[in-house]
Design a protein around this nucleic acid. Sequence first.
DNA 1: CAGCTTCATAACTTTGCGTTATATTAAACC
DNA 2: GGTTTAATATAACGCAAAGTTATGAAGCTG
Lengths: 315, 315
Amino acid sequence: MKLDPRHLEILAAIVEHGGLTEGAEALGKSQPSVSRTLSQLEARIGAPLFKPGRRPLQPTDLGLALAEQGQAVLKANAKASDLVARFRTGHSGLVRVAGTPIFMDGVIASMIARFQQEIPDVRVDQSYGYADPLIERLRLGTLDIAIVPLRRSRVPADLSFQPILQGLNVVVCRENHPLTRSKFITAKEIENYPWIAPPADSPLYKDLRRALSNIGAEDFRISCSGGSLASVIGVLTGSDSLTILPYSVVFMMKDHARIAALSLDIGHPDRELGLLVASEAQQSPAARRFRTFVHAQFESLSRRIVQHRKDQLWR
Amino acid sequence: MKLDPRHLEILAAIVEHGGLTEGAEALGKSQPSVSRTLSQLEARIGAPLFKPGRRPLQPTDLGLALAEQGQAVLKANAKASDLVARFRTGHSGLVRVAGTPIFMDGVIASMIARFQQEIPDVRVDQSYGYADPLIERLRLGTLDIAIVPLRRSRVPADLSFQPILQGLNVVVCRENHPLTRSKFITAKEIENYPWIAPPADSPLYKDLRRALSNIGAEDFRISCSGGSLASVIGVLTGSDSLTILPYSVVFMMKDHARIAALSLDIGHPDRELGLLVASEAQQSPAARRFRTFVHAQFESLSRRIVQHRKDQLWR
DNA sequence: CAGCTTCATAACTTTGCGTTATATTAAACC
DNA sequence: GGTTTAATATAACGCAAAGTTATGAAGCTG
């Protein structure tokens, strides 16, 4: 005999709360509804589930045994409800984040760490890429959030873009690099040192070319290219090479890596770093939560950057 | 959010069997029904439970977690079904049996033991009583089976009576009692020994009086009365007292107790021992099973009694 | 025994599950 | 790469059953 798990739930509620009325109330149903369901259940089973005539309603052995199973159903149901609730509030789930490699490694990784300390049950899938392919993945629904530098004018109409940081690059070298001693660096001086180039298809690479032409350095030598942030830092601190990095990345690393930014105005690109998402509505709650978290983190980061610059001016 | 345990069951079936079609088949439902239920569930939850587009249908993390709860529901449901099935086939439940004290102790107790060896999950509530109050309890529904000696003509119309043994009493004494040496016992001899009387309100007591008047013993002394079978046997084996017992009781005890039946024809009462039940239909399955078990036991007992008598004739 | 609480019953509405028939879509195969 | 095949989604509709309010019956109170 196959019976309805809801009936078992009702039976369990009646037994637990000691009466039809109380059980009905606990279930959020009317008393007659519960009464009839119980009658039907007894009819189907062909045996009384409660001892007849006694008013503090007392279950039979069978009634008690079935009520136990009903409790198991209720428990599983409650757990399922909890799972759903946690999902809907973004306390569990999956977030697929992608961004430019340097940025992901230099800034986002530590934010992910902090996020997971706060919301441990959300899994974060990270991957790397530049704007166009990431836009494609957003459209396909295989990505939740892209963190990319983008010109406002180039934001696709079907996506929503939330700027979080001004685009600002700086030229970087190792600590105690000869150039750090110059107050005003000339193009001629720059040309003495080789460059670590970002991947050729990256926006940063274009920024590098433009920056160099801005400061009048026509000829530049590339000693190495294509590495990840960790590789770049490694080469940088072990040689006299120069490279270009987003200021925020340098800021985040200033306490850990032995690198220095040159006081060299290379102009800033007219791009903004921002969070690109497919559509506000169809975001998973976990993705929404991650997005607001990252947004808040960047606001805090902006403030710290501003503060840091003030401090440097005082010196 | 409160969700329907049946939906969790369906989800579990889909996940377990790897597809809507297979899941539907396992549940004994049509594929469209399962499909729609799943859609509704996803709509209610507001999140996909299966990864879109992939054809060996693959659950999302949330889908998998909910399916686990569905499995718990299915398990509880299966257990409940099993409980019901066992109840309906009489493999679990409660049987309330009552009968005359001497008979319950002397014959029924050992049958209960055998029954419980075979069907261990049926609880047997035994109690003692004589015909009239037991009939009342049968009518009230507080008793399932009464095992009583009854005249056929006195069987109430609303109850059903199943005879299991001819009424037959014998006079009993300890082994090696002086009377066991007499081939033909006279009333005079009998009068030398005191009697252990059954309770005054028992049918056995009436039998005793009638038996004694039958054999012409007008005057008899009662040394003790009112005890249970164990008490009667105790007194009997420790003294020269006599008593009257149903033959079946003596037969059952012949290997354990040091008692002997006197070859003294006291006539047999026109009663039959039988199983009295309220109504065939409203019996609990366990009670039905117990009744057929006891009936079979008595048939076997009858055969053994007949065999035993044959053996004694040969000697 | 009167009053109160609790459970059962009645009558009706609404929800939603089950069905079959059919359209779509993804996978597989040549 | 197009065609076949299997699996899933959608549509339309009947029906079982759960929900509701109103009311009657039956045990426990004092």
